[in-house]
């Protein structure tokens, strides 16, 4: 690797850039000053911890350790989605976990095993960064999709019940809501794919280029990661909704309002 390291003193100096956003926040009396400081502190501590931990994980490159890392990341995403959608974690933990696991693992293992042809499938140096990117996008897509799905049914109760009264089965009654939720969840990735490279260089490509690779190699990685993200988000959203339906509707086909946190 011929990437230039950032020494501790320079890293601290880098925080000086925060003068601009913090100055704007103070100048305009925007009520997020404390929140911003806390977010910066959290980011620093979390990333320092991750850096130290990843150094160990990469050195050991152990199947169980890498697997455990993935499971922990999925668990954290699981809780974040339930919170982000204002849903009761008790009801959604299991379906969200399964949908995130499938949405992350299927494209990840395809990418690492079949495209990159890594001899060791759970190679930490590939699995963790690529898995993190896919999972991060799955999390965002799930929040948009699940929130959109359940809130739309709650808001359109009359229309939903009208459909049931006309003889629709639950699967038929939810179909238009499912379609809208999937569209809302997938639209950002579709828009990103359509403009990628024109507006900004994406994160993975930047990382590969900074790591010293040829830009063409970086592009190939970026194409694959975008396809993996799109595939993962579609799997996770549809699965999260399908798997959560059973515990979210009553036997009469009505939305159980207890799924929402008060």
């Amino acid at each position: 690797m011929n990437i230039a390291d950032i020494n501790t003193l320079n890293l601290v100096a880098g925080y000086l850039l925060l003068i601009f956003p913090l100055g704007i926040i103070l100048w305009n009396r925007i009520q997020i000053f404390g929140q911003t400081l806390l977010a910066v502190a959290r980011m620093t501590l979390q990333l320092l911890f991750v850096g130290l931990y990843l150094r160990v994980v990469f050195e050991l490159n152990n199947f169980w350790l890498t697997g455990a890392w993935l499971v922990i990341m999925i668990g954290v995403a699981d809780v974040s989605i339930a919170r982000g959608c204002n849903l009761r974690i008790g009801r959604f933990a299991a379906p969200l976990f399964v949908s995130l696991l499938a949405g992350t693992a299927v494209p990840l293992l395809f990418f690492v095993g079949l495209i990159l042809k890594r001899p060791f499938l759970l190679d930490a140096r590939y699995i963790i960064p690529i898995g993190g990117m896919i999972l991060g996008n799955c999390l965002r897509a799930d929040i948009i999709g699940i929130k959109n799905f359940y809130e739309a049914i709650q808001k359109s109760q009359k229309a939903f019940q009208h459909t049931l009264a006309q003889g629709a089965r639950l699967q038929e009654a939810i179909r238009p809501f499912l379609r809208d939720a999937c569209q809302a969840a997938l639209a950002p990735t579709v828009a990103t794919m359509a403009t990628i490279g024109l507006v900004a260089l994406p994160g993975m490509m930047t990382g590969v280029i900074l790591g010293g690779a040829d830009p063409m190699t970086a592009i190939k990685y970026q194409i694959m990661i975008m396809i993996a993200i799109f595939s993962g988000t579609s799997i996770t959203v549809i699965l999260a909704i399908w798997l959560s339906i059973k515990s979210s509707f009553t036997a009469y086909g009505l939305l159980d309002h207890r799924i929402f946190k008060r």
């Binding site: 009208h162 049931l164 006309q166 238009p176």
Partner: peptide
């Protein structure tokens, strides 16, 4: 358990139907 088969024996027209 029977609600699904009984609903298709009924037709319902609401006061202010939300027809979509």
């Amino acid at each position: 358990e029977t609600v699904w088969e009984l609903r298709i024996r009924l037709a319902y027209v609401a006061q202010e139907p939300d027809l979509g």
